[in-house]
């Protein structure tokens, strides 16, 4: 795993260097030639590329990815401050999605030919085909502009728990969190539902299901006892992988709802060319994936008895 992180860091390093003069990258655009030269020297750009790489690596290990131009604070710190906000909507979205998708998926997989099943499936197709950002906007139009029930942007009141600022613990916070979380959940939900359905349909064709029936096991127990556990194995692992993707995907939702998370910071930074923050975000996001993949691999060995920790 550390190897992969190292590879990722190297790739980012190469990318940064590929884009031209890092001094230009990391300094505000109005810097004068003397300032640039000073910065280059300070960054050790007059040294050989190998030396530069070592410096970069050392800096990364110390978590030093430079200071934001705009906020004049360490980029990493800025991102970490906003992480709880992003995690809030992501986790809430995943919970909403799972609570709806899995039971429905089981039903649709077990009874694929009922009218209800077909309707659910059609609806899920619609949800997958729908652009998330558009759906968020529609939600705002309906619930904020027309009905005025829910706020259209921003985060609600926060409560500080263990140094983290969390907003879902307040009523005002919940009102603010609902629309973004639902927007994020919709596509997730549809994908999960289809996955569960596909898993169920495949599992139900297996011999051991027929054997369970031959043993006289009731249809309910065949479904929830025998089939479900087998069908959920791939679903759970995909779920884990989706988490990382959702954190990035939340960027869109955060933009629409002006939700102060990591993603919004990224977009804002892109628009004002606050490069250190951009780089910090990319590094962090990449690391997040590596870690998640690792955790999911371990999760797989726990859930499926056929797989060894080797």
């Amino acid at each position: 795993m550390l190897v992969v992180i190292a590879i990722v860091a190297t790739i980012v390093f190469i990318f940064v260097n590929m884009l031209g003069d890092p001094a230009v990258l990391l300094l505000p655009p109005e810097a004068s030639p003397e300032e640039l030269a000073k910065a280059r020297a300070a960054m050790g750009l007059d040294k050989s590329p190998w030396e530069q790489y070592k410096l970069f690596a050392v800096n990364v290990l110390h978590g030093d990815l430079g200071n934001s131009f705009v906020f004049r604070e360490p980029a990493m710190k800025l991102i970490f401050e906003r992480m709880p906000a992003t995690l809030e909507i992501v986790i809430l979205a995943m919970i909403i999605a799972a609570l709806i998708a899995i039971p429905l998926g089981v039903y649709v997989g077990a009874h694929p030919n009922t009218f209800l099943s077909r309707s659910i499936l059609s609806l899920s197709l619609l949800c997958i085909s729908m652009p998330t950002f558009w759906f968020g906007i529609v939600l705002i139009l309906v619930f904020s502009v027309q009905l005025g029930w829910l706020p259209s942007s921003g985060r609600g009141d926060v409560v500080v728990v263990w140094g983290m600022r969390l907003s879902f613990l307040t009523w005002d916070g919940l009102k603010h969190i609902i629309l973004p979380a639902v927007t994020l959940a919709v596509q997730q939900l549809a994908t999960q539902l289809r996955l569960t359905r596909a898993g169920m349909m495949e599992v139900l064709r297996q011999d051991y299901i027929k054997f369970a029936k031959a043993k006289g096991v009731s249809p309910h127990d065949v479904l929830y006892g025998h089939a479900l556990k087998n069908a959920l194995i791939p679903v759970i692992t995909v779920y884990g992988l989706e988490f990382g993707g959702l954190v990035v995907f939340a960027t869109i939702t955060e933009t629409i709802f002006a939700w102060p998370g990591m993603g919004k910071l990224l977009i804002d930074s892109i628009n004002i060319s606050d490069r250190p923050v951009i780089i910090a975000y990319l590094m962090l996001a990449s690391m997040l994936f590596v870690v998640i993949n690792f955790i999911v691999d371990i999760l797989y060995t726990i859930v499926d008895p056929r797989i060894d920790l080797r």
Partner: peptide
């Protein structure tokens, strides 16, 4: 321009997008 009540600029393109993708997915 959402809050000025000019909803059509967002809604129709999105609808069309959705329809296109629905067709592909079907």
């Amino acid at each position: 321009v959402l809050f000025s009540g000019l909803w059509w600029v967002s809604v129709f393109p999105g609808l069309v997008l959705m329809l296109l993708v629905v067709g592909m997915n079907l």
